[in-house]
């Protein structure tokens, strides 16, 4: 106890200084500062585009992780929320000229409503059922969006109306603004999930993920906690889906609602680390470039090579690194912090 008190005292004494001198505080800020410089270093538009996708899917992986990683409700249907977000903003733009910045919140709300509908039918079941149902729902979505072509544009898809680049309509000719917007979204999602993870509901999710029976026994309202996880996850994923539509300018139901898309989102979380905040970011940094570069070099010769690689990565990752790449990275990060702390102590 005495030690704790004195160290607290020390922190208080050197208030502002110590906070910023603590590597735990300045390393993330340093990382963010470096991230802000990326568009100055990466001037090649293709590679910056790739980095943008890494950020977007990293963020989507974090959103997926809320329900898939923390609460361990394996969703293979997050393409539904992604697609709903993309379609809602695009349709609101086409039909009513509503800015994506506003439209995306409608998309988020729709996604939450669909999430609630899904949850009502599947949250009483365990394990595999949820996964099967999420696939079934995304298949139904795909068929519905193909069928009601009057509203959705059908299988031919929709193009985002061209607006000659404006912040108000979330449209830019350069990839740089997208980079900063995506990065901001990523940082906000990281901060949100970090807070959630350390809150009461976050511990509920972890408890459910580890042992649902035990969680129920200690009085956690399982259905409510799961709904909350899926709702938050769906909302965030839909927002990112809107970003995606504004970024690629074209959406069609077959790829937007495919299981492939859902797996792309989940994969980054699995490779990076289930139920961790930064895991999906690490996963996206590793997985996305491999797949995109494969697509670039082999896409014309061997269509499907990038997805085959996704499948292979998934199989290998789940067997070889079930806890994700974040574990060794965290260990290195911890070592770095310790070393920095020791060197600052000596000074």
């Amino acid at each position: 106890m005495k030690n704790v008190k004195t160290s607290r005292q020390e922190i208080k004494n050197t208030a502002g200084n110590a906070m910023i001198l603590n590597p735990r505080n300045y390393l993330p800020i340093l990382g963010l500062a470096l991230a802000l410089l990326v568009p100055l270093i990466v001037t090649n538009s293709y590679y910056l585009g790739l980095i943008n996708l890494v950020i977007l899917f990293g963020a989507a992986g974090i959103a997926w992780n809320i329900v898939g990683g923390y609460a361990r409700q394996v969703s293979l249907g997050h393409s539904i929320f992604f697609g709903i977000g993309a379609y809602t903003t695009t349709l609101l733009q086409i039909k009513f000229n509503i800015s994506p910045w506003i439209g995306m919140f409608f998309g988020g709300v729709f996604a939450v409503l669909i999430g609630i509908l899904m949850g009502m039918s599947v949250f009483r079941m365990k394990g595999h059922y949820f996964a099967v149902f999420t696939i079934a729902y995304s298949y139904v979505m795909m068929l519905l969006f193909q069928k009601f072509r009057g509203l959705t544009g059908g299988a031919e898809g929709l193009s985002v109306p061209f607006n000659d680049g404006s912040l108000a309509m979330f449209q830019f000719s350069s990839k740089v603004p997208y980079y900063y917007i995506f990065l901001l979204a990523l940082v906000l999602i990281i901060l949100l999930v970090q807070r959630l993870g350390k809150s009461r509901i976050g511990y509920y999710w972890t408890a459910i993920g580890q042992d649902e029976q035990a969680a129920m026994a200690i009085g956690i309202n399982i259905a409510m906690a799961k709904h909350l996880a899926l709702g938050i996850s769906a909302f965030l994923t839909a927002i990112l889906g809107s970003f995606y539509a504004q970024y690629v300018y074209f959406i069609e139901p077959f790829s937007m609602f495919s299981t492939h898309m859902s797996v792309e989102i989940a994969l980054v979380a699995i490779v990076g680390g289930l139920g961790t905040v930064m895991g999906p970011v690490v996963g996206a940094i590793v997985v996305k470039p491999i797949a995109e570069l494969t697509n670039m070099f082999l896409g014309n010769v061997l269509p499907g090579a990038n997805y085959a690689l996704y499948g292979l990565i998934l199989i290998v990752a789940i067997i070889v690194i079930p806890n994700g790449l974040i574990v060794p990275i965290n260990r290195l990060y911890q070592k770095l912090i310790n070393r920095l702390e020791r060197s600052s102590d000596r000074n």
């Binding site: 394996v74 492939h260 499948g311 789940i318």
Partner: peptide
């Protein structure tokens, strides 16, 4: 789930 989904995609 993810092992067999990986196999499916592969």
């Amino acid at each position: 789930i993810f092992l067999t989904v990986g196999l499916q995609i592969l």
